[in-house]
Write a protein that binds this DNA or RNA. Structure first.
Lengths: 234, 234
DNA sequence: ACCTGAACACCGTTCAAGT
DNA sequence: ACCTGAACACCGTTCAAGT
């Protein structure tokens, strides 16, 4: 909808940012090639100079999001501050831009800037004495939770922040069926408007850091060789 | 592609199952109204008798998936077995059907059967003495992790199980840039083919259950009134 | 190389009509 | 109520053409 931009002013970043702006404003499904082109004052096909297809555009968007996450200035002093920092960064950025969350669930690759970002985090963990396989194990569990908490909140609450509307719809759903049948749900749902979703995140991140500490983090005190229990599951 | 089904034989379940079968076989993006209709031998518009729109179809699919999760027979004896059981169920079902994972990230509602399922889990937690707000806090953190671990694995490894191909692509990516720059990434990536993703899940679920135990679970020994630390964040 | 305009093969969904 | 067939307003992407 903007005026035609001068030739040569388009960049991968400006395209990705335009796409993110549309997602913010109109929802993720409104991010179409045509809409993004209109946003920067170009023709749909002009974008194909910068991104070979729509998955590549998603990848570019994800790169820009990760730059925002890293801009929350994660301390690299300890492995705890690294893991907590990146989790908190994901949680904060996605809390501010709920329409961006589908990017986290779309398996269309990580841009080079994302690789560099991860490399920096893993370097700290290795330097702190993490075993190589524990780096991915610990990073994976924390990132899984960070991503999942954002998506789970979106699934439960929707994207519009209409908590009350959702709760009422839920209760109406319950009343419509056999009364008393969904007693536990109703009991908890009645508390939902007083609910702070951040508490879910806090409980999870605290538990995970503690668990990593005891299960795979290197102790600076005594330089033991990662005492992992070998487990057998049926 | 099947033969025309007799009039009146279509059900919500058969439509949802056909959609899940297509996702399994051809990928999630191949689940189109037209493809599902063809799968059950009907016309595209025939589905609209059972689902008002595509989001409703997703909701129906999610309901069928949750039935599978609950079919993993979750023990309801303790709150630990409930939370671990549902997390393990999600992890197992989605491990067997990676193409279904986008359903977990799509915020288009939970079907009534899903509500009943959650109600049953929460009933156990309440009966075990959980405070009302702790029910959602604990359930939320565990489910967030379960969902996130599935999606994170899919993001990192792709959906085809082509672990080696992915790793090679990653390493090639690294070599292409300044050598030695992505040292940490390369060090860890070199171990990836020996990697068991289940270890990420095990570390997370263990940590979360332990954290819930200390931070909000009721102790059967001494019936204290949930000793939560009151925290203030900047 | 960058960008345009027309066209193609899809998609979800509406509508009018049949049983 | 259940189901059909044609049509509409989209979508991502290809192609031939211009600078």
């Amino acid at each position: 909808m903007k005026k035609r931009s001068a030739r040569g002013t388009i960049t991968r970043e400006s395209v990705a940012d335009a796409a993110l702006a549309i997602a913010d404003r109109d929802g993720f499904d409104s991010v179409t090639i045509r809409a993004v082109a209109a946003e920067i004052g170009a023709t749909p096909m002009a974008l194909y100079t910068y991104f070979p297809d729509k998955d590549a555009l998603y990848e570019g968007m994800r790169g820009r999001v990760l730059e925002r996450v890293s801009a929350t200035n994660i301390s690299r002093r300890t492995w705890q501050s690294v893991l907590e920092g990146v989790a908190r960064g994901v949680h904060r950025v996605m809390g501010e831009h709920p329409h961006w969350t589908p990017l986290l669930a779309h398996d269309s690759g990580l841009p080079p800037s994302g690789l560099a970002f991860i490399d920096g985090l893993w370097a700290v963990m290795l330097k702190e004495g993490f075993a190589i396989e524990d780096v991915l194990r610990a990073y994976g569990s924390v990132m899984s939770f960070a991503i999942g908490s954002v998506l789970f909140e979106r699934i439960m609450m929707g994207t519009e922040g209409d908590v009350i509307a959702k709760r009422l719809a839920l209760l109406k759903e319950l009343v419509g069926r056999a009364p008393g049948q969904y007693g536990s749900l109703a009991t908890v749902a009645a508390k939902v408007d007083r609910w702070r979703w951040d508490d879910v995140f806090e409980l999870g991140i605290r538990s995970l850091l503690a668990g990593i500490e005891t299960q795979c983090a290197p102790s600076a005190r005594h330089a033991r060789r990662r005492p992992r229990t070998h487990r057998v599951r049926s």
